[in-house]
Structures are given as structure tokens and as C-alpha cells.
Design a protein around this nucleic acid. Structure first.
Lengths: 210, 210, 210, 210
DNA sequence: ACTGCCGGGACGCCCCGTTGGT
DNA sequence: ACCAACGGGGCGTCCCGGCAGT
């Protein structure tokens, strides 16, 4: 009976993701999670002993999203700076299509309201970016003034802001186009002039292609 | 009896700001706003007929922060791009020292949980940045590829992310240093090479002084 | 400055009467009494130290309505049973036209919610009816089986029910016609057959005129 | 687990009836309903999503009291006018002994404070009386002048007034005796002289027996 | 083993009846 | 006469445990 249990757990997670994504952690009642969906409150509390734990599980789901993406794309792309662009683009694409991921990032942003007991999603993400930047430096693409740690954090928050920007600026902006803008603004301050001209062509390619 | 009323209104606003800043809109109960402070729930209800209205008032307080700053600093600084840097630095400084302002920006970020009826704080802020960027372009400092609208939005969200980053990355980072990093990363993608070298010296000055 | 005070007191009473009449004692908030009317809450609490007291004052206003009516009509009508009919008709007419009186009777019905501290409006009214019935008995119009006390109470409650019936039966019934029905049903059980035929004509006259 | 739920629902209804009967709709707080009784607010909210709904359920409980009584007594009593007397007596008896019924009638009287959304308890009761009066007319017992509709309404309001009279006249009067008085006063105006003498003996029997 | 109905307190927001300072 | 302020609940409802079924 493991299969049925797993299906139920999955259904709960998805139901919760939809509501959390739409209304945030505190804005979501268990009631509203199960309402109108084939999930019962009892089932929720069987699988997750607490609302907090439920949210944590959703965050956890995204924990290794970036590492996995890096591992997957690395074989086709040895240059770290380009890998970074590609990862960002794939992440953006996933965010657009997958509620669970959106819910995860949103909940990660609200982790303080979760009592601080949430898994450090963005910590993991930041580390991944840091590693890529280190590689890029080793490959001679980074400007010497760039502080990897700080820039990695800045990229993550900018990206998160990008994704959640629609909540307070323009709801209809395309995430893709915003991503190009972000990199066009960021890269000149990050990479060497030589690198910039070399990857110039790739930027548009990466961000506009499926 | 206008004076007393105003004082009370002020006290309520400040008490609320502290709690909203710490716990967000939904995480804040009216109870927790008045608890331990010289404010009574009755007084709150007298001045603000609703929790939402109270939050809106706090947001509104910051509405003209940037315009005012621009007006104040403009006379000493005719070059728009430098004005922009100064405004950002002053804003950062204010954010560090003033709970009300921090509460305002936080609430503005959560405006969807306010029922969408919140005043468009960041809209006003974005417009201000746009105007400065337009001037900078007229003064020949901006790169031709820069789309003012998009970049203005990006600056605002980056800045907001900067300020709220501590919520999910590092609580102890200094806002000042992050601001320098932000501009060091952003400027090369925004202004002409000539401009960049000209203002090079000012960047450190602006962000470290006063 | 007595005159102004009296005018204010009057205004308060009238404002309160309107709201009490419409929503009952507990359904009426002081707020709703003063809202939209030229009355301030401060003024209310200057003249009446308590909501209860305000309601009591409205009830009191009707205390001597029946005695006065009796005194006034008696000189034109020596026969007690006819006096009774006339008084009932006049009362009905007043109820229709005067909010204060309606509010008074409604509040009297709700006197238990007033903490039992309300003046016994209906007690006074019942006594008046009792006196008229006694006279009628002395004039030989009453059936011997009639117990004056019980019947007086019954008349009052029937009458009160009549007036408040619209709240749960038919909102549009005319009080006048209902009154005729009431007496047509009651009188045969109260007065002698002789009396009944003698006053037959008067019943319609009394209830349909002026 | 239907059984437990039903028992709880019952307990809630009874607890609520006691308080509603004593303090009316607005005078009753959910708090006061559950206080000191084996009922929790959570349970109340589970069964009735609203205070109004709770009150409506109590009213509804009495909806078919009269129809049932009529059906039950009809087989032993073919004469409609006597059936009417018996029904009234049984109802009075039930009112004296059953809080739920008392609460229901009280709430029905206050239905306007329920937002007007209450079930028309007295409408149902009035219809029942009307039907009995129609039968009585067919059996030749009614006076020709009697308007069935109006009289039915009058009986119901008189009866309701009777029962609730204690709230503003005399708390200790016996409902039974008052009922006899009511019919002794009403019947001469309703039924033919012949009928009256025929049922004379039954009146006392009916109201004093059982 | 897993699901779900039912029930339990605890607040949250709103607002109400009421009192000080003027 | 009154503006301003005060706490005290009321209703709704939320997050969460126990049982009874499957």
C-alpha cells in the first residue's frame, strides 16, 4: 500500500503548492488547501504533522534543483560563465511552468514566518552559483574586482526579485526578456571585456531559444 | 485636541511599524501591535478603521521619500547619474535607521496580501528612478542599449532585494557594502566607459561618506 | 441655556427612538444612533449616563399615554366599554404615526434585555385597562364570567402582538382593520348580548373614523 | 462515526436552546452557549457555520410541531374546533416542558434580528390553524362573519403573546389557566351559539386534563 | 497501515459601550 | 457639549489531535 500512500502524499504536496504559491504561508489555511481538491485534512496530518512541516517539504523539493541542472548541462558546456547563463535560463523556464517550484521559492522567501525552521533553499542555490563563479574565475573570465560571495548573493536575490517582481511592478512582463536584461546589465560588471565579446552572441541564443 | 490626536496617531503608526517590520502583514496581530506599548486597541480603531488601512498608512508615509530626496540633493549635484547614486545611498541610510521606512517597504512587497488595495509605493519609486535615468541619458552618460523602463524596475527590485536579503541570506551583512557591490556590478552595464572612469572616484566617496 | 439642552435631549431621544424601533435594544449601537444625525456621542452621555438609561427614558415617555387618553376622552364618553374601544383606536393611531411610541413599546417588550431595570410600561397600561373594565362591570356591560385581571392582560398582550405582528406575519396589514377584527372576536366573550347589540354600530364608527 | 456526530449536534442544539431561550438571539454569545456545558466552540463551528444558522436550526426543529400534533390527534377527534382546542393545549404543555420549543418560538419572534433569513415558523403554524378553521367552517361550527385568515393570525399571535407574556407582565401565571381564559374569551366570537354550548363541557376537560 | 470525520481550544479582527481632558 | 481614547469581548475560523472505518 506504499504506492497509494505516495500518490496521496504527492497530491497533498501539489494541492498545498498551488495555495501557498498563490497566498503565501500565512495566507494559506489548511482548509483552503483541501477545499475543492481530492485531499482530506486527515490525510494531510497523517503525512505531515504540521503546517510548517508541509511547507518545509515543498521547499525541500527544490533543494537540489540547481545542482542537478548544473550536473546535467555541464557535459555540453565546459565554460562556467555560459553554464551559469544556461542554468539561469532553465531555472526561469521551470519556474514558469511548475507550481511546486514557484511555491518553493515563495516559501523560501517567507522562511522567517515559518519560524526560521525552514531549510535554507537559497543558501544551497547561492553555493551553487558561487561554485560556478569560482570556475569562471579559474577560466579567466571574471574581472579581478569581483567578490564571488557577494555577487553570488546579489545574483540570487536579483533573480528571486525578478521572479516575484510581478507582485509589485508589472504582472505581465515576460520572465525571459527580463532575464536578458538582467544579464546584459550584470555581465559588463562581472566578466572581462574579452569574455563579454566572446559570449555576446550566446547571450541572445541562450535566453531566446527553447 | 488635534495635537494629542496627532501624537497618538504617530505612536500607533510607530508601534505598528515595529511589528509589521518584524513579522509582516499577516504575521502581525493588532494585539501584538498594542501589547507592551502605550497604545490601546480602541485608539487604533479610532484612527484606522481596519488593519489594512493601518498598513496602507505606513506604506503611504514613504510614498514621497525618493522624490523629496531628489529635490533636496539636486541643487548640489547637477549630474543625474551621480544624483542617482547619492539618492540610493541616502535611502539605504534611512532604511537602516528608520523602522517606519523599513516597515513601509516590507508592506509594499506584501501588498498582494493586503488585498491588492495597497498604494503603489514602488510604482512611485520606479518613476523617480526613471526620471533620473532619462536625465542621465540626456547628459550623455547612459549606454544606448539601456532600456530605461526595464532598468529602473530592475534597480528597484534589486534594491528591495538587497534590503530584504537578510531575511534569507545573511542577517549581518552591511547594507552599505552591498550597495557598493551593487553599483560596481550594475554601472558598467549602464553607463559609458568615459562616464564610468569619471565617476569612479565618486562611487567610493558617495557610498562611504556621511 | 436650558432651552438648548432640552432641544438636544429631544433630538437624542428621537434619534435613539428611530434606531431602537428599527433594530431593538441589543441590535442598536450608540454609534448607529448618532451616525448621520446631528447628535454626538458625547451629548448622549451628557444627558444619559448609560445606554440602558436612554432606553428607559424612551419607555418612560409612553408611561402615561393611556391614562391621559382616558382622561381626555372620558368627558365625551361615559360608557366605559366604548371608552375602551376609543382608547384602543387612538393608541393604534398614535402608534402608526409616532416613532417614539413605537420604540417605547418595542423596548418595553424587550425589557428583560435591559437588565430588568426598565419601567413597567405595560404594567401601567394594564392597570388602566383594568380600571376601565371595572367601570364597565359596574355599568352592567360585562359578562359575569369575565376575570378582569386576566382579560386586561390578555388585551394588552393581544394588542402588543397586533402591533408587532407585522414582524412575523404580514408586513402590510392595516393596524386599523386588525383592530376591528380583534374587537369583533373579543367582545362577544366579554360583554353581554344586550350590550353587544347596543354598541354594534359604534364599533365600526370608532374604528373607521378619523 | 455518524452516531457521535449526531449526539454532539443534539447537545449543541440543546445548549444553544437554553441560552437563546433565556437571553434571545442578540443577547446570546456563542461563548455563553458553550460555557459550563460539554460543548466546544469548535464543535459548534463544525455543525453550524454561523450563529444565525444555529438559530435557524432551532427554529426549524419546531416547523412541523403543529402539523404532527394535528395528524396525531385527528383520529380521536373528528370535530375540527375541538381538535383546535386540543392542539393548543398540547402545544402549551410542550412549551412548558421543552426548552427547545420555547427557544424556537422565541427565536421565531426575533427573526428580524436574524437578518430576516429565518424560516417562517409562524407561517407554518398559521397555515395549520387556517386549515383547522376551514374544516370547522365546513362542519358548520364557525360564525359566518369570521375571516379565517385574519383570525388564524390573531390566534397565533395571541398564543405567542400568551407564552411570552411572562416576559413583561407576570412571570408566575400558569399557562394552562391563561389558555382557558383565552379560549373562553375568543370562542364566543368565533363559533355559533349552538356549538358553544355543545363544547362548553369539553373546554374545561381539554384544558385541565392529561 | 492509511484515511477521514469530528471535535477542541485559541486567537484575530472588528467594534461596542464607556470615560477623561477641554 | 465633545473629541479622543480604552479595554473588553463577539464571531469567525484556524491549526491541530483523537477515534472509527477500510
Amino acid at each position: 500500500m506504499q504506492a497509494r500512500a505516495d500518490r496521496t502524499r504527492r497530491a497533498i504536496l501539489e494541492a498545498a503548492a498551488e495555495t501557498f504559491e498563490a497566498n503565501g504561508y500565512l495566507g494559506t489555511s489548511l482548509q483552503s488547501v483541501v477545499a475543492g481538491r481530492r485531499v482530506s485534512k486527515g490525510a494531510v496530518y497523517f503525512h505531515f504533522s504540521t503546517k510548517k512541516e508541509l511547507a518545509a517539504a515543498i521547499i525541500m523539493e527544490q533543494q537540489d534543483l540547481l545542482p542537478k541542472l548544473v550536473a546535467e548541462l555541464r557535459e555540453h558546456q565546459p565554460r562556467a560563465i555560459l553554464l551559469l547563463l544556461q542554468v539561469s535560463q532553465r531555472t526561469a523556464r521551470i519556474l514558469c511552468g511548475d507550481v511546486m517550484t514557484r511555491a518553493g521559492t515563495r516559501l523560501a522567501c517567507e522562511y522567517e514566518q515559518l519560524g526560521g525552521a525552514a531549510p535554507p533553499l537559497f543558501g544551497e542555490w547561492t553555493s551553487t552559483i558561487e561554485r560556478l563563479l569560482s570556475e569562471a574565475r579559474a577560466q579567466g573570465d571574471l574581472l579581478p574586482a569581483v567578490d564571488i560571495r557577494t555577487v553570488a548573493e546579489f545574483i540570487i536575490t536579483s533573480f528571486a526579485g525578478l521572479h516575484r517582481r510581478r507582485y509589485f511592478v508589472k504582472p505581465d512582463s515576460k520572465l525571459d526578456r527580463q532575464l536578458v536584461t538582467m544579464w546584459r546589465v550584470l555581465l559588463p560588471g562581472l566578466v572581462t571585456a574579452g569574455c563579454l565579446t566572446e559570449i555576446e552572441y550566446e547571450i541572445d541564443m541562450i535566453c531566446n531559444t527553447k
